[in-house]
């Protein structure tokens, strides 16, 4: 909807059995549930033909965005490190949260200001980001943490952490920066009728990047 109707970009849906994705510049794995999320969220989706083709797409350096369940699929597939587990308080959390944009030199975030606090909706039961200490250090050292849960003034605190994610992680990218996974839903904050437009800049950033390349 966002890319097709708000940005007027040619967009097609990918069926899980599709394995030819060569015509695409950007692949977006949306939220929801995949294969019933049996065993673990995203665990079975990882082996679908479309995901295998998405991995190949990412390995060519092309852009892949995973939102919510899409983020879970990306960690399960190994495109992003770590894992997403049951929320700290075991509840499904449906809310609007403040996020600090920690990195703005990516195709995904170049239209934001570094340290900018934005508001995006979240809606998940398994959004608690976990990675071992070494992986967390690598994420910090390589500046792969893109979004963190924060207070409205941008402070990173436990009280602003809706799900228990380590380091308040809400979104990370791979080392190259072409794969982004995030639990919050930028696509649900793209039109003023939705109450918030802070997510639109993410999609506009990508579009600007693609236009700059072309």
């Amino acid at each position: 909807m966002v890319v097709r109707d708000l940005l007027n970009q040619p967009t097609r849906m990918i069926w899980h059995e599709d394995s030819d994705l060569d015509d695409l510049d950007v692949i977006i794995l949306p939220g929801g549930f995949s294969y019933g999320d049996y065993l673990r969220c995203g665990a079975i989706a990882r082996f679908s033909p479309a995901l295998q083709a998405t991995i190949a797409h990412a390995q060519q350096g092309k852009l892949v965005l995973g939102i919510c369940n899409g983020f879970q699929v990306l960690t399960e597939s190994g495109l992003l490190p770590g894992a997403l587990m049951r929320n700290r308080d075991l509840h499904f959390v449906c809310d609007r949260v403040s996020l600090r944009v920690d990195r703005t030199d990516l195709p995904w975030t170049q239209n934001y200001q570094s340290g900018q606090v934005i508001t995006l909706p979240i809606a998940h039961g398994e959004g608690c980001y976990y990675a071992d200490a070494d992986t967390l250090k690598q994420l910090e050292d390589n500046r792969q943490i893109v979004f963190r849960y924060c207070t409205q003034s941008g402070e990173i605190s436990e009280s602003a952490n809706p799900n228990g994610s380590l380091q308040n992680i809400a979104g990370i990218c791979n080392a190259q920066g072409n794969v982004l996974g995030m639990m919050p839903h930028p696509e649900r904050a793209t039109d003023s009728t939705l109450g918030c437009t802070d997510g639109l800049q993410l999609f506009e950033s990508v579009l600007a990047q693609m236009l700059a390349i072309a």
Binding site: L39, R40, E76, A83, Y130
Partner: peptide
């Protein structure tokens, strides 16, 4: 590969 996630 599937039944367990070695990360967690």
């Amino acid at each position: 590969r599937l039944l367990a996630n070695p990360v967690i």
